[in-house]
């Protein structure tokens, strides 16, 4: 089904080489934001142009490709990116985390443990964790270079002073291998512990901001916190309404105008497989 008018996976080979070099640099310096010459992609910024370029650069014909958007395989963004690569690269698609070799994700890490040989590509809107407190790019780069990360804790301090606890619940900053502070993209902080010591390769791409960064397998990743306000990977305190899982990240779904709601796994593949194995939650039909 490959559209012969396109080069394999859309991008030209020179562009892929450029991106691969940036990826290698990113893997060599875990957590460091590598600038790259981001290309115009046939989709708007904010729809994953950074992730798509990374995916295109690392994709091989034999890959099995999975795309999730906030954990779901069937949302518009996921469906169109999957279709894009089916058409331009002809790779096999899957929704199963364990089958996939290449996974592009927006705002989640799958519940099923990743394994060696898999590549997880994150779509990143704003790669700079210091941005909101220090708007000058020249200054934030210097702060990274000199490891001046006090400002990151100012953000967490502000959280506690305003809410009584660290209220940052997604894009929760981490420090990589005791060196670079990194924005893990807007994944829920529930997913933060999965970043560290992961057997798979994790790549992060910000198309509009033209930055790539990476976590090689088994990298030490620590979520920032205070001694008296330690990091907590929190989630809604419910079991999944469909599969009954108590250890997965949940979406809250409003059921009707009366405000009835249910909590379901945000990872549709995880939930579906549990249901197929016979697990049932209280709201399951």
């Amino acid at each position: 089904m490959t559209d012969a008018a396109y080069n394999f996976a859309y991008l030209d080979e020179q562009t892929k080489r450029m991106i691969r070099r940036a990826i290698l640099k990113g893997l060599a310096i875990p957590g460091y934001q590598v600038p790259f010459a981001s290309r115009e992609m046939p989709m708007p910024y904010g729809w994953g142009t950074g992730g798509v370029q990374l995916t295109a650069a690392v994709m091989c014909p034999e890959d099995r490709f999975k795309v999730i958007d906030q954990g779901a395989d069937d949302t518009t963004n996921a469906v169109s990116i999957r279709a894009f690569f089916e058409r331009t690269a002809g790779v096999a698609a899957t929704t199963r985390t364990d089958e996939a070799t290449l996974i592009q994700t927006r705002h989640r890490i799958p519940e099923a443990p990743l394994r060696a040989g898999q590549v997880l590509v994150f779509q990143v809107p704003i790669p700079e964790p210091l941005r909101f407190l220090e708007p000058r790019e020249s200054e934030t780069r210097k702060m990274h270079a000199l490891e001046e990360y006090g400002l990151m804790h100012v953000k967490l301090y502000e959280d506690i002073s305003r809410h009584g606890h660290i209220a940052t619940s997604y894009a929760y900053p981490v420090q990589v291998e005791g060196r670079y502070v990194m924005d893990p993209s807007p994944i829920p902080k529930f997913d933060n512990p999965k970043l560290g010591d992961c057997p798979a390769i994790q790549l992060f791409g910000a198309g509009r901001e033209q930055r790539i960064y990476a976590l090689p397998p088994y990298t030490r990743v620590v979520s920032l916190d205070f001694e008296d306000h330690p990091f907590e990977a929190s989630k809604a305190d419910h079991p999944c309404g469909l599969c009954g899982a108590t250890d997965s990240y949940l979406d809250e779904v409003i059921m009707d105008d009366a405000g009835r709601r249910m909590f379901v796994c945000s990872d549709t593949d995880f939930c579906g497989q549990r249901q197929a194995a016979g697990h049932r939650g209280k709201d399951a039909a």
Binding site: E148, G150, L151, V154, I160, F226
Partner: peptide, 9 residues
């Protein structure tokens, strides 16, 4: 303080 390593809120 945080810039010089204070980590106790």
């Amino acid at each position: 303080l945080m810039a010089v390593g204070a980590r106790h809120y």
